[in-house]
């Protein structure tokens, strides 16, 4: 078992014929993902990486029964691609693209909500369910290893780092989800935590947040109301000064909101063990899983 993505998922890739799309679709196929189609408006009817390419998501869904989309299209067209996927009835849309205008995302987010589709991202590494041999996005294949830990994080490379450190200590993942670093996101920490709560394979959740916004605080509220599994927390950007945007469009402490101190405090109040370093994440996971 896993969340969001499993061996049954039939994946199409929007922007598959582009250079990023090509490279990462290849990686996804190598990992074992069931990639059934690509979508590139104007290139319909051709083949790419041994998969049929369609002009529209709707056509691809009719012909291939795709259930999930990975979006690799350039920022100017990404919000439209996300809405197209939702309109075609896909349940899960994973958008890797960064630098999407934020008002585009506001509209896309509202559109998806009205269609009941789930969005992961944008500006995210995507997700991977190693036990199901399925991934959508750019998480390096070698970091995946099946196991009991659910990983949810806002940052890409930090997610890989955590996955690798856990794997080195012998702990694999049920599913790892990078929710993205933008101010307007699809799934939040709380959404992913709720999914992990009802996944039998997930025994423990590692949640890696960062400065900016208040998604971590809201996840802490959710956990504080009673969460069925242990959660190990981590917050990066503890030493970031207020008012400076740290790379991610959303990573900024403005006024009183978004500081690492407020997030750590909220998580600790909710009973989450917050690690100071990635090494400590591994120690806490080890202690928790041994305790059973």
């Amino acid at each position: 078992m896993s969340i969001l993505l499993n061996s049954e998922s039939r994946v199409l890739v929007q922007g598959m014929t582009g250079s990023e799309g090509t490279f990462h679709t290849q990686q996804m196929i190598e990992f074992g993902t069931n990639v059934v189609a690509g979508v590139s408006p104007g290139k319909g009817g051709s083949q790419h990486l041994g998969r049929p390419v369609f002009d529209s998501v709707a056509e691809a869904v009719i012909s291939t029964g795709a259930t999930v989309s990975g979006v690799f299209v350039p920022p100017a067209f990404a919000a439209d691609a996300i809405m197209e996927a939702a309109a075609a009835g896909l349940q899960l849309v994973v958008c890797i693209t960064e630098l999407i205008p934020v008002n585009d995302m506001v509209r896309a987010r509202a559109y998806l909500a009205s269609r009941g589709a789930r969005l992961v991202g944008p500006n995210c590494p995507g997700l991977m369910s190693p036990g199901e041999r399925s991934k959508v996005g750019i998480i390096p294949n070698q970091n995946g290893r099946p196991g009991p830990v659910g990983v949810v994080s806002r940052s890409g490379t930090l997610t890989y780092e955590i996955m690798q450190s856990l794997a080195a200590a012998g702990y694999g993942q049920s599913t790892a989800v990078g929710i993205g670093g933008d101010p307007v996101l699809g799934l939040s920490f709380s959404d992913v935590l709720e999914l992990f709560a009802s996944d039998p394979e997930t025994e423990l959740v590692v949640m890696a947040g960062e400065i900016g916004g208040s998604d971590e605080e809201r996840a802490a509220e959710l956990i504080g109301r009673g969460y069925p599994k242990p959660v190990v927390g981590f917050i990066s950007g503890r030493t970031a000064p207020p008012g400076k945007r740290m790379g991610h469009a959303g990573a900024i402490i403005s006024g009183n909101t978004g500081s690492a101190a407020s997030k750590v405090a909220a998580l600790e109040r909710a009973g989450v063990e917050v690690a100071d370093t990635i090494e400590q994440i591994v120690e806490r996971v080890t202690a928790r899983l041994r305790r059973g």
């Binding site: 994080s153 950007g237 503890r238 740290m246 790379g247 370093t277």
Partner: peptide, 26 residues
């Protein structure tokens, strides 16, 4: 982003670089 200290930090990925700053401070 200029932070005013004396150890230059370069990394790939915003979260990783933020974490690197934290490590230097620690």
């Amino acid at each position: 982003v200029h932070l005013g200290g004396d150890i230059g930090v370069i990394g790939n990925g915003a979260g990783l670089v933020m974490n690197t700053l934290d490590l230097v401070k620690q």
